[in-house]
């Protein structure tokens, strides 16, 4: 439980961090809250030659709202998300989901950017970001680019980020009136990753579903965007039968792996159950309940 040797860098600005990353490239790992990376290093599953600690870069912790879009610094901690008035006002789902991550100690260190960029399908923010239609600002040697959450996840621990790129900001459109969102997470105990999780965002107009997004946690190599399930809802008045159909479509999008949380079949069923619960709750909220 002792990591191998590594060099430690603690840049004071994004520019400095980007330059370091450009220079050190694939030998370096970016350290955010450390709650995924450090355990891997202690088990020597990860043995980076260099660590670039973003902890001293104050600008990466800022949360603001601009033109109906939440701009969340990648180093904002889960605890900061939970405490943020801006997030509670414009997209309370993020704070609700953050409160379901791990435990208070982890939430005081763990960051939204680390959770997103690690590419672990067990992390909760990826599905939330898919459902909310978020986009990610990446900073590399050649400047900045913005990638939609839907284009970000490639495979297990593999994202659209290049070796010299940093995730600096998360952009989330504020929820519009008449929209409800919910995240349902089934877990074995407090602090655990999800057995299965489902995020649902539903907009209601004139009693019918105007728009919908559903995304799932820990039931595939990446967070799963259950597009077919969401599409089924759009344009219809949502009732229990339709919710059941949508859950079935969500289940068919799952490809979990068996582990001690349960076998594939169980996890798939639970993805369905979480989807049902998330849709019900999102619908209730969309209707002002």
């Amino acid at each position: 439980m002792i990591p191998g040797n590594f060099d430690y860098h603690r840049p004071g600005s994004v520019d400095e961090a980007a330059a370091l990353l450009g220079r050190l490239g694939e030998d370096a790992k970016v350290l955010a809250g450390g709650h995924s990376l450090l355990p891997m290093m202690k088990l020597r599953l990860a043995e980076p030659k260099s660590l670039i600690d973003l902890g001293a870069i104050a600008e990466l912790r800022v949360i603001r709202e601009k033109d109906g879009v939440l701009q969340i610094g990648a180093m904002a901690t889960e605890a900061a998300l939970i405490a943020s008035d801006l997030i509670r006002r414009h997209c309370p789902l993020i704070a609700e989901a953050a409160a379901l991550i791990a435990d208070p100690q982890v939430r005081n260190r763990g960051t939204i950017g680390g959770d997103i960029a690690h590419g672990d399908p067990g992390n909760d923010h990826p599905a939330i970001m898919l459902a909310l239609g978020a986009s990610f600002v990446l900073r590399g040697g050649k400047g900045e680019r913005v990638v939609a959450a839907g284009d970000f996840y490639r495979a297990l621990f593999e994202t659209a980020m290049k070796a010299d790129e940093l995730l600096v900001e998360i952009r989330v459109p504020a929820l519009r009136p008449g929209t409800g969102a919910s995240y349902q997470k089934l877990k074995r105990k407090v602090g655990d990753f999800a057995i299965a999780g489902a995020a649902a965002v539903i907009g209601i107009k004139d009693g019918r579903c105007g728009h919908a997004a559903i995304a799932l946690t820990n039931v595939g190599p990446t967070a799963v965007n259950a597009e077919a399930a969401a599409a089924l809802l759009v344009g219809k008045a949502i009732d229990e039968a339709l919710i059941g159909e949508a859950a079935k479509l969500a289940m068919s999008a799952c490809a979990p792996t068996a582990d001690l949380r349960g076998p594939v079949e169980y996890k798939t069923r639970m993805a369905g159950e979480m989807t049902r619960r998330a849709i019900r709750e999102a619908l209730k909220r969309a209707k002002g309940g």
Binding site: L186, R188, G262, Y266, R269, M270
Partner: peptide, 16 residues
């Protein structure tokens, strides 16, 4: 009696 084991029984009995 983990959730998945209990759920297996519910599923087998068709009460889920």
């Amino acid at each position: 009696h983990t959730p998945w084991r209990v759920s297996e029984v519910c599923h087998r009995l068709g009460i889920d």
